[in-house]
């Protein structure tokens, strides 16, 4: 893959460092105390992207599909940790998130590949898979966080339902529904305003790479639909898996200490 006219040269990248300096100057002038953090963030971004770029180059040229799917699996594991740790008090939160994200990604990306909507090549599996994982991860994290909050704050309500003889699933159903609804709002809203407020990533990338806009939007439409499905599945499954771990034998809601839970926010 040679350099395209539309892509900044390394000299261009060096020039853009000036913009980081500008941000740092603002921090220094207003004593925001963020100067060091800005520098660290900029360096981290550079190093991480350089490493990913090099790794992608190797995978595309030598690793093939096996390495691509291995890469995808690692993204799912990382996504599971990030989402699951949002809700530290939920027992097995990481496992719930990881399983939910894995299934959501498997079904969504699997459907696109099986029906040949996109080709099964490393150049597709990794970036498109990455988008699915991050969409699923965000939905799973929001769901688990909300579930944890409900289990803590709505305890009396849930136990009132249990005390009427409802099963754990019935007693938690309103909270579970609420968690999934809340988690899906950002994805649905983003889908609603796509193109009106922001030109989304996949389309932007294609246009920058010189693809005609009407072709670029086809990719974006597929991506948006894929993200809707991935987020819905991940949220629904996260709620399903995690709600089980909220109840002990005999349909008892486990206790969560309020003090430790506030640390999550």
């Amino acid at each position: 893959m040679g350099e395209t006219a539309n892509i900044p040269s390394w000299l261009g990248v060096a020039t853009s460092v000036l913009l980081v300096l500008l941000a740092m100057a603002v921090s220094v002038r207003d004593r925001l105390g963020l100067t060091r953090e800005l520098a660290v963030a900029a360096v981290r971004a550079f190093v991480q992207l350089l490493a990913v770029g090099a790794l992608l180059l190797i995978v595309f040229e030598r690793g093939g599909l096996v390495a691509s799917f291995a890469w995808l699996a690692i993204m799912v594991v990382i996504g599971g940790f990030v989402a699951g740790r949002r809700a530290r008090q939920l027992p097995h939160g990481v496992h719930s998130a990881m399983a939910a994200i894995a299934i959501a990604v498997g079904v969504t990306l699997g459907a696109l590949l099986v029906f040949r909507v996109v080709p099964t090549t490393p150049e597709v599996v990794i970036p498109v898979g990455g988008m699915v994982v991050s969409g699923a991860m965000a939905a799973s994290a929001l769901t688990l966080l909300r579930i944890q909050e409900s289990a803590r704050d709505q305890r009396e309500r849930i136990e009132a339902r249990l005390s009427l003889g409802l099963t754990a699933a019935q007693a938690f159903a309103p909270e579970q529904r609420d968690a999934v609804r809340t988690a899906l709002i950002p994805t649905i809203d983003t889908t609603k305003v796509v193109g009106l407020i922001s030109l989304p990533g996949a389309m932007t990338g294609l246009i920058l790479a010189g693809v005609a806009p009407l072709e670029a939007i086809r990719y974006q439409i597929v991506v948006m639909y894929m993200l809707l499905s991935a987020a819905s599945l991940a949220s629904f499954l996260s709620a399903k898996f995690s709600h089980r771990s909220l109840f002990a034998d005999g349909a008892r809601l486990i206790s969560m200490s309020p003090s430790a839970a506030t640390m999550v926010r």
Partner: peptide
């Protein structure tokens, strides 16, 4: 059976949350 037990042994709490 815990669900049957709870239907025979009802509980009303301090706050009377409405469902």
């Amino acid at each position: 059976d815990v669900h049957l037990l709870r239907r025979r042994v009802g509980l009303v709490g301090q706050q009377a949350v409405m469902l």
